[in-house]
Design a binder for these strands. Structure first.
Length: 804
DNA sequence: GCTAGCCCCCTTTTT
DNA sequence: GGGGGCTAGC
């Protein structure tokens, strides 16, 4: 078992060779981070003779974990001994440990993990039980708050009560926790928090022996801990790491503050600074050489991230060649954009680029449909990551609910889901009665059914009979499920519950689709069984269910000859030869729904754009549309401020014919000298490229950098709603990055700047004074028909109005 | 008790 | 545009 002799640059080698004590690695995009982590692990095992099972490597996704393990298992790395490493996500790792000591967190062996939908169902019930108005306390909001508290490591008792609503939220939190415990269930946060609580138990005598035993085992468990994507850890995860590493302090964290894109779900970049504070003696290594992308791509990325407010000082650079220009293509609308993507993909394929090396990114899933349609219509194979999730389809959730009840009959969320699915004459009223009886007696639904006679007077004789039949069905299934392969259990459940026959009888395309999905689901159970056996594990229903809940969309990415469509978030950690970044318009990317973004949110959008751009190795194509239909409305779009940030000397502006005829003046622009694949966008009629700054002629598509400098100062969207823009040229028909656009509702609404318009909304016009919107007129320069007292109905351009 | 239709809302999403 | 949740009416 010899260490490979990798070619590492000096900082990489430094990080790999570091053995004892804390280590902080700043790993710029494409700087060979994965390589450093794997080599470091190999070094620990092969050279430092550390037992592999005493090393924990935490990754961001299961896929990343699988790849890391696969690399380490290669014969030229560690080979078979790598199997003993603990490699996994925070959640999978904690679940694995808690399965060993479920009593320490007041659960039993078969505990289930509730996903977001299940969690929401529990909260909704809790709110109902507490008689809290669902309007005032939206389940989603309350759940969000509970998560936040948990991510910060606070139970209901430690909650800070800031507003008058918090009292109720605290009650809901308490109830939620009770319900999970009663159901022998955990949510995602519980996995982390549970382990932290074990580790933080003291010997004061108030903790049961199970907890102290688990604590002792866990404290001794790991000698070396490595964490990838550290910038996206949250408070509780960082606390977990600190506790796990308390004994040895051999904690190595790897991250890049510029790629922190999960603040909205609790991730805290400040953990990086916290690490420096908490481990003042930590060795700090910066990986700044990018091996992935061309110079043009790297400088584009740097230009985007440069104006981010808080950054660790570092400079990404590359030795790679200039590469082909970054193409920025103006398109007429989302269909034209999709057509443009199709052409680019075809050209790339013709140029010999493998489809698996091509990715199409967008900011929100809603953008994917049009792209999918376009690709399908020309038979370009694609895979789409995320979006309508397979496991969230009703029939799959139903099947999972049945399976989970078999493993864990106390799981009420699941019982409530299947008790009348397929319809078996047990209506809401009956279900509510059972649920009420159960909760007042402290029973689970299933336990309540076992005591059906005790509350028989509450339900009529017919419902009682049906409840009895359902109970017998479930008893039978539980019995027969024992010692059967998971896929067999599923087939049995679908047959005996009547689920399959109901779908069979329906004879509709929709039912057909559901049956296909269930067949696919069964296939995934077979896959799981095969994989488990390959690892030398017994395939179990519990194991399968855990995998289903803890797996991510990217985990299912295939290596087929297909191009990949995904959100920018999904693209983290990946790389492609060609990246097509679509929808680069203000308010699409940076995305904004209703509220204006604050500076922090804008910074996160910026980092997201940085992540998107740095995924590309050789070619980067950025598209934007002048007009876009999304969420049922048409928006007029101006190029994203991030496009405006790109250095003029690396980009090439192009325009589709449709964009040209639809939009303002402008022509195909092509330097002719551009490398890269096909030149589909380049009719020969070209005029000199606009470049060199603000002196570009106003009539051309000169928006690439008309207001450099100004844009940087209005970073948080200060121009929005703050009256006429401070950094745009109002006279030019060509719109500027950062300029406001108008969103039009079908007949009566829309938004202008950060204002969402409705019919009847008050507006103010400089000459006509205050009025009321009657109609919105969609055109390249949108207008409204409004009624102004004293003037009557007037059609005025939206950009001359103030709203309110 | 069931279901058709209506209304509302809409980031990103791991796990 | 489309999915999910709720209501009203059968």
């Amino acid at each position: 078992m010899e260490m490979p002799d990798p070619e590492l640059n000096p900082p990489q080698a430094e990080a790999v060779a570091h053995v004892e004590g804390p280590l902080l690695v700043f790993a710029g995009a494409g700087s060979g981070k994965t390589r450093v982590i794997t080599y470091r692990i190999a070094n620990l095992v092969a050279r430092e003779r550390v037992a592999p099972w005493r090393i924990l490597a935490v990754t961001f996704t299961n896929k990343a974990a699988g790849e890391m393990r696969a690399r380490l298992e290669r014969p030229d790395m560690l080979g078979a001994v790598a199997k003993d490493l603990w490699v996994g996500t925070f959640h999978a790792t904690c679940a694995k440990f808690l399965r060993l000591y479920p009593e320490a967190i007041e659960r039993t062996k078969g505990f289930v993990i509730y996903d977001g939908t299940d969690q929401k169902a529990v909260v909704t019930r809790a709110l109902r039980d507490l008689d809290l108005d669902e309007k005032r306390y939206a389940p989603k909001q309350v759940l969000g708050r509970i998560h936040k508290e948990k991510q910060e490591g606070r139970g209901p008792e430690e909650m800070s009560l800031d507003s008058y609503l918090d009292d109720a939220i605290k009650k809901a939190y308490v109830r939620y926790e009770q319900a999970l415990k009663a159901a022998n269930a955990l949510d995602f946060e519980d996995l982390i928090l549970g382990v932290v609580r074990i580790l933080e138990a003291d010997k004061s005598g108030q903790y049961p022996v199970e907890v102290l035993q688990a604590k002792e085992a866990l404290e001794k468990k790991f000698d070396y801990i490595l964490v990838d994507e550290f910038q996206d850890t949250n408070t509780i995860q960082y606390r977990l790491l600190q506790r796990l590493a308390a004994r040895t302090r051999n904690l190595c964290v790897v991250g890049d503050d510029d790629q922190s894109i999960y603040r909205w779900r609790g991730a805290d970049v400040r953990n990086i600074r916290g690490f420096r504070r908490d481990y003042a003696d930590a060795k700090v290594v910066k990986l700044e050489q990018n091996y992935r992308s061309s110079k043009r791509i790297v400088s584009s990325a740097l230009a985007i991230i440069a104006s981010s407010a808080t950054r660790e000082p570092k400079e990404l650079w590359t030795d790679n060649g200039d590469g082909s220009p970054v193409r920025v293509i103006a398109t007429a609308d989302e269909r034209d954009e999709a057509a443009c993507v199709v052409r680019a993909v075809k050209d790339a394929r013709d140029a010999g680029i493998s489809p698996r090396e091509i990715a199409v990114f967008y900011r929100v899933h809603a953008q994917s449909r049009v792209l999918e349609e376009a690709l399908r219509s020309v038979n370009i194979p694609y895979q789409i990551i995320g979006g309508a999730k397979f496991y969230e389809r009703a029939e799959i959730k139903d099947a999972i609910a049945y399976l989970r009840v078999l493993v864990n009959p106390r799981s009420d969320v699941d019982m409530l889901r299947i008790i009348n699915t397929p319809p078996r004459g047990i209506g809401n009223t009956t279900v509510e009665r059972v649920a009420t009886y159960a909760s007042t007696q402290g029973f689970s639904i299933f336990q309540a059914l076992e005591r059906l006679d005790d509350f028989a007077e509450d339900v009529g004789s017919a419902p009682k009979k049906r409840l009895g039949q359902f109970r017998e069905l479930m008893r039978g299934l539980i019995n027969e499920a024992k010692n059967r392969p998971p896929a067999d259990v599923l087939r049995m459940v679908l047959a005996k519950s009547g689920y399959k026959s109901v779908l069979d009888a329906e004879d509709s395309a929709e039912a057909e689709g559901r049956l296909e999905n269930l067949a696919e689901f069964e296939g995934s159970m077979h896959d799981y069984a095969t994989e488990a056996q390959a690892r030398g594990e017994e395939p179990t229903l519990e194991g399968f269910l855990e995998r289903v809940t803890l797996q991510s969309d990217t985990d299912n990415m295939s290596e087929q000859e297909k191009i990949t469509l995904m959100t920018v978030h999904g693209a983290k950690g990946l790389e492609f030869e060609l990246v097509l970044l679509t929808g680069m318009e203000e308010d699409m990317f940076p995305y904004r729904n209703q509220e204006p973004r604050n500076a922090e949110e804008m910074d996160e959008e910026r980092r997201l754009a940085y992540v998107a751009v740095t995924r590309a190795r050789k070619h980067l194509v950025i598209t934007h549309a002048r007009q876009r239909q999304i969420f049922g409305t048409t928006r007029l779009g101006v190029p994203s401020r991030f496009v405006g940030d790109l250095p003029p000397n690396v980009i090439e502006h192009l325009e589709t014919p449709a964009a040209r005829s639809a939009g303002s003046a402008g022509r195909w622009i092509d330097r002719g000298s551009s490398g890269g694949f096909g030149d589909h966008t380049a009719p020969t009629s070209s005029r000199p490229r606009t470049g060199g700054g603000a002196s570009a002629p106003a009539s051309s598509r000169s928006w690439q950098h008309p207001q450099r400098g100004a844009a940087a100062t209005s970073e948080d969207g200060g121009g929005w709603g703050a009256g006429p823009s401070v950094h745009r040229k109002p006279a030019a028909p060509a719109r500027q990055p950062g300029e406001r656009f108008v969103e039009l509702d079908e007949d009566a609404g829309g938004s202008h700047g950060n204002v969402r318009l409705r019919r009847g909304m008050p507006v103010t016009h400089e000459r006509f004074g205050r009025g009321e919107v009657l109609q919105v007129v969609q055109s390249s320069d949108p207008a409204v028909v409004a009624f102004f007292p004293g003037w009557g109905e007037k059609k005025v351009l939206a950009r001359f109005l103030r709203f309110g």
